[in-house]
Simulated assay, not measured.
Amino acid sequence: MLQFSKYQGLGNDFILVEGRDGRLSESIVSPDSDWVRKICDRRFGLGGDGLILALPPQGQGELRMRIFNADGSEAEMCGNGIRCLARFLADSDGDSPGRSWSIETPAGMIIPELQQDGQIRVDMGAPFLKPEMVPTLLSPDAKGLPRGEVSREGLTLSLAAVGMGNPHVVVPVDDLEAIPFEALGAQLECDPLFPAKTNVHFLKVHGRQHLEIRVWERGAGPTLACGTGACATLVAAVLMGLSDSEATVVLPGGPLSIRWSDQQGSVFMTGPAVAVFDGVMNPDLMPEGRPDGLAAEPKPLESSTPPGFDCANDCKEGCRQPDRCLREEAQAKVQAFLASTSLDSMINLAGDSLEQRTLSRIQRDGQG
């Protein structure tokens, strides 16, 4: 049975799967888009704006994150998602405030830190403003911000593009409720001005330290929050002269604190991430392969096995001991376990570890 956790950041919710030990099967680590859509479906699956995998690092990071949108596409980064991942790591490992993680993402190394109040502060790195890095076909203005105008739905829209490891377009408007939000969001997401598509944020400026946005996320549509979008919005607002370098960005799901004090440096985002529930996936929801979602990882069973022998690596050109194949024995044991153990028993086994994890989290937070 594959364990998972559900977390949300300002209503932007994710299914999180632990895989730092390297034991997840390839069908989970590199999931089929149809399976991602299936488990993210709110009626027929687990429900979520995306799937997040915590994986072993490939470089200098402590771990690696892969995040998949609800439509099955892979995202480069997600601000709310990485806050949820950080909180998940802290809850899983019993970490205290001050703990930070170096997390590898397709957008580069991102470093979240657990704060005293339980919120997560994230060094999101420097924004990308060169058009080819966003990417966008808009041209930079005198401040280096890609800008332009388009006509859509009978309106003339001013656009500003910012990259935060993923593409964003910020659209200042006078009234967030009056705009045809869904029509404009869907059109701008796929506009040819944005070769990799884009996240879309409609911005209402209430004051130089008070910004409000409505979010249309690439691959997900309307969502309650977008952390990278809040960062991109502040950067665009600063360069357009609409905002101070630090402001509260209010999203439909709640506020985020965003700071960009050094225009050559990182954007910092601080906001909440909350555990919703832990669970185990029904085998019917699993992709093809082992029902527990784990890769077969046979271990030496007898002293006759050569020291340090690892058939996953040593037998790439063919089995080196066909008379005693460790992989076949391990798979046979798994099949025997599955055949002899009821679904209720497997759920109880998984539930025991989930219950212990939840109790540890409560005790650490001083609630129990």
Rank of each mutant, 00 (worst) to 15 (best):
E288P: 09
R87Y: 01
G163F: 11
P180R: 11
L24Q: 10
R37W: 05
T198Q: 11
I110G: 03
G254N: 09
G154D: 02
G185P: 09
G81A: 11
S96G: 00
C78P: 04
P97F: 03
C311H: 03
F268R: 14
C319W: 01
N12T: 09
S158I: 09
T223N: 06
K333F: 03
M269A: 09
L176V: 10
F88V: 02
S243H: 03
I213H: 10
T341K: 04
A247V: 03
E246Q: 14
G351Q: 02
S342V: 03
W260A: 03
D284F: 01
V17C: 04
L24K: 11
S151E: 15
K143E: 14
K299N: 03
D175W: 06
G98R: 00
G368I: 13
D323E: 15
A70K: 11
M133R: 13
Q356S: 12
R214Y: 02
G59P: 00
A107W: 04
M240F: 02
S257W: 09
S25T: 05
C315E: 08
D191S: 15
L234W: 10
C190L: 14
A90I: 01
G9A: 13
K143L: 11
D323L: 05
S353E: 12
L159W: 03
S100C: 02
G241M: 04
I82A: 07
A312L: 15
R208K: 15
Q187F: 12
Y7V: 05
E328M: 11
T270Y: 02
G79T: 07
F14P: 03
T341F: 01
R357G: 08
V36G: 10
P31F: 12
K197S: 14
L338M: 08
R64F: 04
R361S: 15
G118E: 00
M346D: 00
D292Q: 06
A312P: 00
D244C: 07
I15S: 09
R364V: 00
D34H: 14
V250F: 13
D21C: 09
L349H: 10
S340F: 01
S257A: 14
G48P: 08
K130T: 12
E212N: 08
L285I: 04
L138I: 05
A75H: 09
G219Q: 12
G368N: 08
L55E: 13
C311G: 04
M286N: 07
E132T: 13
L285N: 00
M281A: 13
K130N: 13
A332M: 03
V36R: 12
Q187I: 14
I103N: 03
R208G: 05
D32F: 08
P298S: 04
G144E: 07
K316C: 05
Q119L: 07
S257I: 11
S257G: 05
G163Y: 07
E177G: 13
E329C: 00
C311L: 08
P167G: 05
G163L: 07
R259F: 01
E149Y: 06
P56C: 04
G148M: 10
E329Q: 12
G22P: 12
L338S: 00
P180W: 13
V215D: 07
H168G: 10
